[in-house]
């Protein structure tokens, strides 16, 4: 029994140490004077590899999710005879929840895991060490652009996801199931509030982007520098990111519903 508690305590201490290290990593990478000559091209490159290359999965998933929500929503609303309300149902569920959350989880799976693997591999092959020996700080040169790339890409991807999902909802609801076009859009417009729904959705995606990027980069930077270590770290990134997203989503939704 005592041994179990001791192990639990030891695990707790390791977790605290890991959180501390991750905090240090964040501070030492981000809290710096920005170096625009080198930093900007690197940032653009990272937005490309994290954001642009994730576009395909975001677009396809967004479209399908919008279509499914519309289909299911129509099914339910039909029973109450309120199918003209489909527009606001689709828009509210996507802008408030599905847009930020699903796009964040997809990003974690696609770009987060890639980040972890890349940084882990650079650590395992001594690329980060050799950079240090060349008097270049790898935290500024390699890690910081990846941080900022993630922070900027995720909200953009979330907004694009939301847009195409609503369009998917329109395709199914209006074009296929015959909901009135005018009712669809006007119901949406009078019930979706820019500040409460859309801006809050964007705030959620910014928070999620911060969390995912931080987790992904830390797991890569901190991993055991072997093949097995990298694969474990990549898995951890996806799992932890997804859990953190869902947890943060609940907290943020509660805060937003309470009227902040």
């Amino acid at each position: 029994m005592i041994a179990f508690i001791a192990r639990l305590g030891k695990a707790g201490i390791h977790i605290c140490e890991a959180i501390g290290r991750s905090g240090w990593l964040l501070v030492r990478s981000i809290i710096r004077k920005p170096n625009f000559r080198h930093g900007f091209p690197a940032l653009v490159e990272q937005i490309y590899s994290e954001g642009v290359l994730s576009l395909i999965i975001i677009l396809v998933s967004g479209l399908f999710i919008g279509m499914v929500v519309s289909l299911q929503g129509y099914n339910v609303l039909e029973k109450f005879g309120t199918t003209p309300a489909l527009g606001q149902l689709v828009a509210l569920s996507i802008t408030r929840e599905l847009g930020p959350v699903v796009s964040a989880i997809l990003f974690a799976g696609r770009a987060g895991s890639a980040l972890t693997a890349e940084i882990g591999l650079m650590k395992a092959t001594d690329q980060l060490s050799s950079m240090e020996m060349m008097a270049v700080d790898p935290l500024r040169r390699v890690i910081a652009p990846r941080f900022w790339g993630g922070f900027l890409s995720v909200p953009v991807l979330a907004v694009i996801f939301t847009t195409i999902a609503i369009y998917g909802g329109y395709l199914v609801g209006v074009r296929w199931l015959g909901v009135d076009n005018g009712a669809f859009w006007s119901g949406m417009q009078s019930n979706v509030d820019f500040r409460i729904d859309i801006i809050n959705g964007i705030i959620k995606s910014i928070v999620f982007g911060f969390a995912i990027t931080w987790i992904a980069i830390f797991q890569g930077y901190d991993c055991v520098p072997t093949a097995e270590g990298i694969s474990r770290a990549t898995t951890r990134t996806v799992v932890y990111s997804s859990l953190v997203i869902l947890g943060l989503d609940f907290v943020l939704t509660a805060m937003m519903m309470g009227g902040w």
Binding site: T125, D126, Q127, S129, S130, E132, M133, M134, A135, D137
Partner: peptide
């Protein structure tokens, strides 16, 4: 970092980018 400019290190695996 200034002092490191005086040093060069060749890693076992090369560690090329």
């Amino acid at each position: 970092y200034k002092a490191r400019r005086k040093m060069g290190m060749l890693f076992q695996s090369g560690a090329l980018f």
